Computed example of a mutant assay.
Amino acid sequence: MGIAFAFATNDDVVTIAGLDAQRATWLGWLAVVAGALSTIDLIIDRRGAARRRGEAVALLSALKAEYRAAAQGLGEPEAARLEGRYIDIVTRIPEIPERLFNRLKAKHLLKVEVSKELSAHPGISSLRARIRVALRATKG
């Protein structure tokens, strides 16, 4: 929007969305809004949080593979090593914000139920399985 002022008339007063103000006033408000949005973006850090969650998923997936490989002959030293790795990884996982927990849990439980439905009825589509689970939930 700041670039648009390069094409504005030379008048001192500019009208935007029915509001009249001096060009300098509009540029000032644009700077305030841009600064506020930049600060909010730095505080929220969505990209950083997404990256940390992605790293946690990768670490947990690797650990799950180690547990599967070691499940056959899990001796005492191997069990202690895996437990240490588990504790290390779990302490580094970013916490789930309280406001998202119930929504994410509901989504996870729905996925589990759909998965059970797909296993119980091989060959049905994922959509059909979701519909069957939804119908079962409304009846119960």
Rank of each mutant, 00 (worst) to 15 (best):
V33H: 04
A34M: 08
G35T: 09
G35E: 08
A36M: 12
S38V: 15
T39S: 13
I40Q: 12
I40D: 07
D41Q: 12
L42D: 12
L42E: 10
L42I: 05
I43A: 15
D45W: 04
R47K: 08
A49V: 04
A49M: 07
A49T: 03
A50C: 05
R53G: 05
R53Y: 03
R53S: 05
G54K: 05
G54V: 01
E55Q: 06
A56M: 04
V57W: 00
V57P: 00
V57L: 10
V57D: 01
A58F: 00
A58D: 03
L59H: 02
L59R: 10
L59K: 07
L60T: 01
L60C: 09
S61M: 04
S61Y: 00
A62G: 08
K64S: 13
K64M: 08
E66Y: 01
Y67V: 14
Y67F: 15
Y67L: 15
R68F: 08
A70Y: 02
A71W: 02
A71R: 08
A71T: 09
Q72W: 08
G73T: 11
G73E: 11
L74D: 09
L74G: 14
L74Y: 06
L74C: 15
E76F: 11
P77Q: 11
E78T: 07
A79T: 02
A79Y: 02
A79W: 00
A79S: 07
A80V: 14
A80F: 04
A80Y: 00
L82K: 04
L82R: 03
E83W: 04
E83L: 15
E83G: 15
G84A: 15
G84W: 05
R85A: 13
Y86G: 09
Y86F: 10
D88Q: 13
D88W: 04
V90W: 00
V90S: 08
T91S: 11
R92N: 03
R92E: 06
R92W: 00
P94T: 01
P94M: 02
P94W: 00
P94K: 02
E95S: 08
E95M: 07
P97E: 10
P97Y: 04
P97R: 11
E98Q: 12
R99N: 13
L100F: 07
F101V: 12
N102Q: 14
N102D: 15
N102I: 07
R103Y: 09
K105Q: 14
K105R: 15
A106M: 12
K111R: 13
E113S: 10
S115P: 01
S115Q: 12
S115G: 10
K116S: 09
L118M: 13
L118F: 04
S119H: 13
S119L: 15
A120S: 12
H121P: 03
P122W: 05
G123P: 01
G123A: 09
I124N: 04
S125F: 03
S125L: 05
S126G: 09
L127D: 08
L127P: 00
L127C: 04
R128K: 14
R128M: 11
R128L: 14
A129T: 03
R130M: 08
R132H: 02
R132M: 13
V133H: 02
A134F: 06
R136P: 00
A137F: 01
A137V: 02
